[in-house]
């Protein structure tokens, strides 16, 4: 097991370095002067700025020297200065990431905690009413466009029924808890501030539900299909011939096998939630990475886009690593 993890980790590091290379090459092979695209028109018009920039990134040196300088700066957390905000990109990302992580994680947990059991029950009680309900829910989740769903739930639960809070992470009049992790749920618990915790949780319900909808549908369907397949394996018949109860057969013999494909899907889905919540964040005024990405792209804020791309790539790699490790935990055949 340790050897397996080390080898997977090594692979992830290699992939991460490759990702930096790709990002570097894209940034440095765009037509035109890299200094111009990196600094923005305003700053580039200042000759002092321009000179300092050219010196720092050694723009007159060959490409590979510049790549090593880029790597060195990266190691010190320097992702450049955002053109739009004129602040270090890393600071911007640190600002926006927690909101996204909180939203995506709650959304993902919601879809997994509901989706997996629902898929299992739908498979075990195949063609019963619950199977039909699950199929209907999945269909809605997978097929409704996110912006549509977001508007609908906002209109119903916030506008009409007024049982859910409006957009934003907290009530406009509330203060954010002391920043430790940037995740409001955790920070408020750390501060022992239960009112803020409740407020943050209430604000999470609608956007995370919207975000979870599509993932929930996918997880439910995949779990159901996977369980159905495992149910007809020989070892399940053997388990039945041993006299095990149906509950034990499902929990101990079917589920661990059936979860293997679900883990792959779950990892991908989680990464997608982290990287692709632009629509939901915009509609719910969620100050997350999605909105930062959107703004940076619209403003052609090149350093910010590079920074985000790198963060997304690393996120994918980390999640991939986690998926690989869960594989090894679920399936002993993975480590030979």
């Amino acid at each position: 097991m340790p050897r397996y993890i080390v080898s997977r980790l090594g692979l992830a590091v290699v992939m991460a370095i490759l990702a930096t290379l790709v990002i570097f090459l894209i940034a440095n092979t765009v037509p035109g002067d890299p200094a111009l695209s990196q600094l923005g028109d305003l700053a580039a018009s200042n000759p002092e700025f321009l000179k300092a920039f050219r010196a720092k990134w050694a723009l007159d040196e060959p490409l590979w020297t510049r790549y090593f300088i880029f790597l060195k700066e990266l190691a010190h957390g320097d992702l450049g200065i955002s053109i739009a905000s004129q602040r270090p990109v890393l600071d911007d990302i640190k600002n926006y990431a927690p909101a996204t992580i909180e939203l995506a994680t709650v959304g993902f947990l919601l879809s997994a905690i509901i989706g997996v059991p629902l898929g299992v029950i739908a498979a075990v009680r195949r063609d019963s009413w619950i199977d039909h309900v699950a199929r209907f829910l999945s269909l809605i989740g997978v097929s409704s466009p996110t912006f549509w769903l977001a508007f609908i739930v906002l209109a119903i639960f916030y506008g009409e029924l007024q049982i859910a809070p409006g957009p934003g992470r907290l009530d406009p009049i509330a203060f954010a808890p002391t920043n430790v992790t940037g995740l409001f749920l955790i920070d408020s618990i750390l501060a022992g501030d239960w009112d803020t915790f409740r407020d943050a949780l209430a604000h999470l319900i609608l956007p995370s539900t919207v975000l979870a909808a599509a993932t929930l549908g996918l997880i439910t369907r995949t779990t159901r299909a996977s369980v159905l397949e495992c149910m007809h394996q020989d070892y399940v018949r053997v388990a039945r011939a041993k006299g095990l109860t149906e509950g034990k057969i499902v929990m101990r013999h079917i589920l661990p096998n059936a979860l293997i494909p679900v883990v792959t899907l779950g990892g991908l889905a989680y990464a997608n939630l982290l990287a692709g919540a632009v629509m939901t964040e915009t509609i719910f005024s969620w100050p997350g990475l999605g909105r930062y990405t959107f703004r940076s792209a619209a403003a052609l804020d090149f350093p910010a886009i590079m920074g985000i791309t790198l963060v997304v790539a690393v996120t994918y790699l980390i999640i991939n690593l986690l998926v690989d490790i869960s594989y090894a935990l679920l399936d002993p055949r993975v480590i030979r």
Binding site: Q233, D234, Y235, R237, V238, A239, R240, A241, K242, G243, L244, T245, H253, P256, N257, L330, D331, P332, R333
Partner: peptide
Amino acid sequence: RKIRGGGIAMVFQDPMTSLNPV
């Protein structure tokens, strides 16, 4: 259930698929 695996036991044809791999 008491009889299954208790009074009567069964061994199947394909040992490769009869044991749970995980």
